[in-house]
Structure formats: C-alpha cells, structure tokens
Design a protein around this nucleic acid. Sequence first.
DNA 1: GTGAAAGCGCTAACAT
DNA 2: ATGTTAGCGCTTTCAC
Lengths: 343, 343
Amino acid sequence: MVTIKEIAEKCGVSITTVSRVLNNKGDSISDQTKERIFRVVEELNYVPNAVARSMVTKRTNNIALIVPDISNPFFADIAKGAEKTCVTNGFHLFLCNTDMDKEVENEYIRVLRKRLVDGMIITTQNNEEYDVIFEEMLDSNYPFVFIERYSDKLKNVPGVFASNIEGAYSITKHLIELGHKDIAFLTGPLVTSNAHYRLEGYRKALTDYKLPINPELIRNGNYKVDGGYKETKALLRKKIPFTALFASNDLMAFGAYQAAKEFGLQIPEQLSIVGFDNINMPGVIEPQITTMDIPAYDMAVKATTILLDLIEGQTPKESKVYYPLQFINKGSTAPITEVKRFA
Amino acid sequence: MVTIKEIAEKCGVSITTVSRVLNNKGDSISDQTKERIFRVVEELNYVPNAVARSMVTKRTNNIALIVPDISNPFFADIAKGAEKTCVTNGFHLFLCNTDMDKEVENEYIRVLRKRLVDGMIITTQNNEEYDVIFEEMLDSNYPFVFIERYSDKLKNVPGVFASNIEGAYSITKHLIELGHKDIAFLTGPLVTSNAHYRLEGYRKALTDYKLPINPELIRNGNYKVDGGYKETKALLRKKIPFTALFASNDLMAFGAYQAAKEFGLQIPEQLSIVGFDNINMPGVIEPQITTMDIPAYDMAVKATTILLDLIEGQTPKESKVYYPLQFINKGSTAPITEVKRFA
DNA sequence: GTGAAAGCGCTAACAT
DNA sequence: ATGTTAGCGCTTTCAC
C-alpha cells in the first residue's frame, strides 16, 4: 500500500504539504508543487487511508441504518429516504440487515459504535431486550436515532414514530362500520412496540364500539408472508366464525389473502382483509389490500436529518416526531351480509 | 470517549496489559489483574476503538456488498447469502444501494476501498464505464469480486456468473416450440453485460430456428416494473403483431403483464409472457410468470467465500464460477392458436 | 506476569 | 509557501 509518506518523498516535499493539497487546504501551495503531487498520486495510484484519517479527525462521514428485514419494501423505502439524505449531505449509508435476529442486531450495533460510523439509525423491531446497549450508547453520547421503536426506558432517544394506535384504531373502525363484528387480528412479533400498539388500537376500537374481544381471534404472527398465511390457515381450520381480518402488516395480509383464497373464499365478498404499511409491491396485481399508509420515506429523511444534526453536535430542531397515518382503500373490504358468511 | 489509556491508569497497569486481556492474549496475565481490568472496563463503559485497531492490524473484518436496486428481491436474496456467509466467518456485511446510479456506485467504491472494508462484492449492472477504478483496484491488489458482471478488459477479476446466454436461449426456445414466431423482447439497461447476453440468447434461438429478428419487437427497458409496463404499452399501441413477450427480468415481466391486462388481453391465451430471475415476490398471487431461476443465494455465498479467501491472502479454489439456470414453468405461456391473435 | 517503546497513516497546530 | 512536531488509540515486538 502506498502511503502519503511515499508521495511526499517522491515529490521532495513534506507529508503536510501533500496532505494539504489532497484536502484542498493548499491555498498557499504553489501550483507547481500541487501539480507535481497530483502527478505522483496518479502515477503511484495512491488512495488515502480513510481509517488513518478518521483516526485524527474523529469522523468517518458514514452512518449506518439497521433494518430487520430488507426484503420488506417498507424498509427498502426507509433505506431510500436515508440514502438520499446522506448523499445530499456528503455522507454515506451502510445498510445492515438483521433478519429480525436480535443477536445479529446487537452484534451490528456493537461493532458499528466502535467508531466505524458516526451514528446509526435503528429501525429495529426488538423492544425491551438489549436496552443495556442503548443505555450505554446514551451514556457515552453516541449519536443514534430510532425509527418506529419505543421504550419507556429510553424516552430520551430521538426518533420518528408512526401513530400506530390511531392507525390501527381507524382501520378497525372502518371494518366495524361495514358491519363486521367478528374481526380476526394477526399481531406482529410481540417483542415489538408497534405490534403492541397496533393490537392496542384494534382492542380500543372494539371496546369503544361495544364489541367483545375474542382472544381466539387474535393470533401471533411474525410480520412476514408465511406467518400471515399460517395463522390464517389455523384460524380457518378452527371454524371460529369471523368475517373480517386485520393483519398487522401488509406482508402478513398477503399471506392471509393467499390462505383465504386457497380455502375457497371470495375476497372481499366472504372475507374482508386489511393490512398496514401500504407497501409498494411492484407488479402486484392481486391482492390489492386496504391498508394504512405510513410515510416511510419521509420518516427516514427526518430521522437522518436528526441524526446528522446530532453528529454535528447541534440540537435537532425536532427530536421526536410523530407521523399520522392515512387510510388507503383498495377494495379488499366489503359490508357484511349474512349470506356471505362461511362458517 | 474513554480510551485504553484511561483503563490502564485506573487499573494501575500498562496499556499493553489491558490490550492483551481485551484481545484474549493474556495467558500470562494473573486472574486478579484480568478481573480488575474487566471490572473497570464495565464501570467506565469502555468500547475499544475499531478504527485505531484496524489502523495497526490493517483489517476491519467488514466487507461491503454493492447492489443496484435493493427493492429487487433478486438482490435481497444475494444480500442474504452474503450476509449469512459473513456471519459464519466472523465478518460483517455493509450493504450499499446505488439505485442503478453509476455516480453513486463509483462514489461508494471510492470511499470503501480507502480501507473502510477489507473487500467488496460488486453486483453492479454498469459495464464498460468506470473500468478505470477496477483496474486501479486490481493494480493495488485490493480484494473484490463480481457477481453477474463481465468485462473483457477485466478478465482477471474473480466472480460468479449466471449462464445468461444459455438461459435466454432456452426460454426463447420454449416459446418457439409453442409455435410462437413473433416474440417481443424487453432488454435490460444495455450498459449491463447480462442485458446484452440475454438479448444474445434470444437472437441466437430465433436464428437457430430460422425465425426473423424483428427490431421493432425489441425494446430497451430498465429492469424495473415501470419500464416493462411502459415498453409493453408502446408495443401494443404500435399494433405490430406479437404473440409472446420475453422480458429480460421478472420485474419488467410484471409490468408487461399489467400493461397487457389493461389492454384487455388474456394471459396466456392471447399473449404468452416469460421473465427471468425467478424472484420471490411475497404476496404476488397473480401474475405467476414462467421464468429462469438464477441461484442468487448460492451465487452470493460462493462470491463471498471467494472474497474472504482473497482477503486472507489465499488463492480461492475456484475464482470464476458459472451457474446454470433452471427453467420454471408457471403457466404464463400457451401454444399459439390463430384465433387468439389480437393484432 | 508485566511494561516501554515504536509505529500504523494521517491531520493540525505551531513554527519559519 | 512549506516544514516540524505531536498525537489520534491501538497492537506488537522486545525486554525484564
């Protein structure tokens, strides 16, 4: 590896001069010297060592985004928002995919905060566990922000959040107003705060409308297609009557749709299905699922902006931002009618 | 930031001792000292600085994977294969998404090779351009491997490749054997080697079967859903008769499907459609598109293995690997019948 | 069983 | 217009 020292020697100047020229701090360097340096740099194919550099500047100009599932278009959107904001600000974004594995997530956080990146955006789904590491980062003033992660213990962490309770409430209300009384619910992984909140919104709506909460209709999913499929199959096999199904995210709703189709049900005539996230699945002609839109891209832009402020040592204008969600009707729900009941 | 020096002082030992204990090189250190060090590390919430460390070890144990489009499940699969292999080998993977932007890709490569990562897996789609940087990396012995990127100028770069020509040939042959003569073709971005090869396979099959190549039926796409949609629309509007369509990747095939549906065509009765990649789109019940399976996950595992060998200074067992593709019939094609012609 | 010293490649005062 | 020096936080000889 060729170093700055070799360049300096070959040019007959000090390494300081080379460093100045390379960092555009060479106002006072003669054009002649500059030119010589550039020529030798080219000649020797010299690449400055960013590690050595960040050792003294204490900056890398890189940040990391930790996501639980890169296959989920919701997180791809988040990645795009973060990426764009980084590029605009001269930063680079490294994506880390944990595959919903707490160990992997923890490992990434541990590695990254050893000054490999200047800060992190964490979209983890895992709550309550590993709060220790977050507290440590808080203690040592390491910059990080959350997206969609809450924890009572970590009230001081900046972040952007979706109004999950309200969103789940209003989409449940939509079903109730269509006349549905037996509304099945598929949760996300319950280690997750948003899974909890969405469940809470659902329960609240039922309660407000004086409908009973049937624990048999509430099943634990995993925010993935296969989970939605499996739990819906299980539900259908049990022959407990329900006329609508609320999946805590779109991926599970897709799985539910598939299971219902295989069971021979017409959607929405025999079963209304709703999801959550409004993910953009390119090429999905069927199913189209009524859902709540979460402004993932905008949230990521905001989260990144907050993080960059933090890194620059500035107090962000807003450090906790809540985003309202929007109901998107795609026609996968219908009013209840007795004749369409299947069980 | 608490440093190793502070730990040493607080423990009344040298930094050497602390370093030894922390790196499990302390066989000859008394348990008493060890214990004291661990206690103080805990107490002060000390995190070793990986940047300083890699400065002397010249290793980061991180690699990067550069992908053109993280929303494409094909690349999500690749990411998973690479990630898994990294974890197994004590490495970490940073994903970089270029959004098919050559500038962004180039920038990532430039930044990363400044020793931020020990090596890169590049799944770029951009050929021919920026070969300079690859030659530079080759010259300076920087470890990197390609997935699905060819360049005559870069024959020496290790990598894993899909047999695109053969794959495109055999899927075209499938259409020809069903009786289709007018087969439209949507290319990928032609800066891409695999886009070229797939086109080549298509042409070769037509030629071998003595069918004319109609340039009007060949349209340049972008490997995205919207491109497939747009080009198919254009094709349909032009009223040039064709009874089958070969989209260079599944994403475009989805777009084509959508366009054909909107045009009122029955698939496959009135139009046979095939894609390429065999991506797993969660939730896509329809369309199901006949395609060529590319073993993305396995290819990524192999690419990562080669890269890690390179990083360790070993000569990889295989440095260029070609993967055969597999025809997957999902029923989006049908034999041609006169009555079904639409134009 | 432990420490001193050198050095990784670079930047940033502080000179001159 | 350029050089000298110190130092970033760590690992690694070499010594005792």
